[in-house]
């Protein structure tokens, strides 16, 4: 980058930074609002400035949040962690195996599978929701953990990415060497190829985690038992009640803050990992 630093003063530096400051404020101010608001009591919303602190009420809000409806917020957080954490770990492993198989082995039908995978990327959730609900009712798994968990494992775009990573990071010579050493194909994948694909797989994992944590349509359709809700569906349900019961407002706001924090932290901590993965795939 030093090259660029010395050469390219092409726009006035202050103007550039003004644009960046505006963009950063636009991105961050809503989150600042979330932090200040989570510390307020219901009364303070109308009497204090949006971005200033009122009377420090955070602990009361958190306590009410976790005791509301017998501490159901705990279940929501735990569910989200199970859906997103379990789904991302298992899902990215499945993607890695399939992407590797398409890129580096020659099983019959892999071209067809890859074509189907690319088509799968473009199928809208809207199309899948109703038939999935009906199929789940047939199988009597509506309103169970699995009804949400299994569909969210499917990540066609992850397979596409894994294929790119396998192509780019696993040299054929290494596989050949493993084969000569007598390692079977499956063992080669787990002990040789998978570690080489690791940065890419971590990227798939992270984005699948976000995808599942964000998913709203499927849980909304497939779950009615609040005990099984992921946190965003639970907060959504509370938010629909607040016109009649304003006391839900501080709960929704404080709950939102607690649901956002782990994700933002994960992105900051894993900053280098996912950037490297995106760069390695150079893909959206």
């Amino acid at each position: 980058m030093s090259f660029a630093d010395s050469k390219s003063r092409w726009v006035s530096v202050p103007a550039v930074h003004v644009i960046l400051v505006v963009a950063a404020l636009y991105s961050l101010l809503p989150l600042v609002w979330l932090v200040t608001s989570a510390t307020k009591s219901l009364g303070d919303f109308s009497t204090t400035g949006a971005f200033s602190f009122g009377e420090w009420n955070l602990w009361t809000n958190v306590k009410t949040l976790f005791t509301q409806e017998n501490g159901i917020f705990w279940s929501w957080l735990l569910n989200s962690v199970l859906y997103a954490g379990g789904g991302a770990v298992l899902g990215s492993l499945i993607c890695a195996a399939c992407g590797y198989a398409i890129a580096k082995t020659s099983f019959p039908g892999r071209r067809l599978l890859f074509a189907l995978t690319l088509t799968g990327v473009l199928v809208p959730t809207t199309v899948l929701a109703l038939p999935m609900y009906l199929l789940a009712s047939e199988l009597r798994i509506v309103d169970t953990f699995w009804a949400v968990f299994i569909p969210l494992l499917t990540n066609p775009f992850g397979v596409y990415l894994a294929r790119v990573y396998a192509d780019a990071s696993v040299p054929d010579e290494v596989l050949e060497a493993a084969r000569v050493d007598g390692a079977g194909q499956l063992r080669t994948f787990f002990t040789v190829a998978l570690p080489m694909m690791r940065p890419g797989v971590v990227t798939v994992l992270l984005f699948q985690f976000i995808g599942i944590w964000n998913n709203f349509f499927l849980p909304l359709v497939l779950l009615t038992n609040p005990k099984l809700f992921p946190v965003s569906l639970g907060l959504f349900q509370w938010s629909t009640r607040q016109t009649q019961f304003p006391q839900y407002t501080p709960l929704v706001i404080t709950g939102s803050l607690l649901a956002v924090l782990p994700l933002v932290l994960a992105f900051l901590v894993l900053n280098r990992q996912w950037r490297k993965g995106l760069a390695a795939g150079s893909v959206k």
Binding site: A97, V127, V159
Partner: peptide, 23 residues
């Protein structure tokens, strides 16, 4: 190369059961 098929199988099952069949 059936080892490849074994590796691809979990995703294949998911793709068929949660995308293809619902569509």
């Amino acid at each position: 190369d059936f080892a490849g098929l074994v590796l691809a199988a979990p995703f294949l099952v998911l793709l068929v059961s949660t995308v293809l069949v619902p569509v």
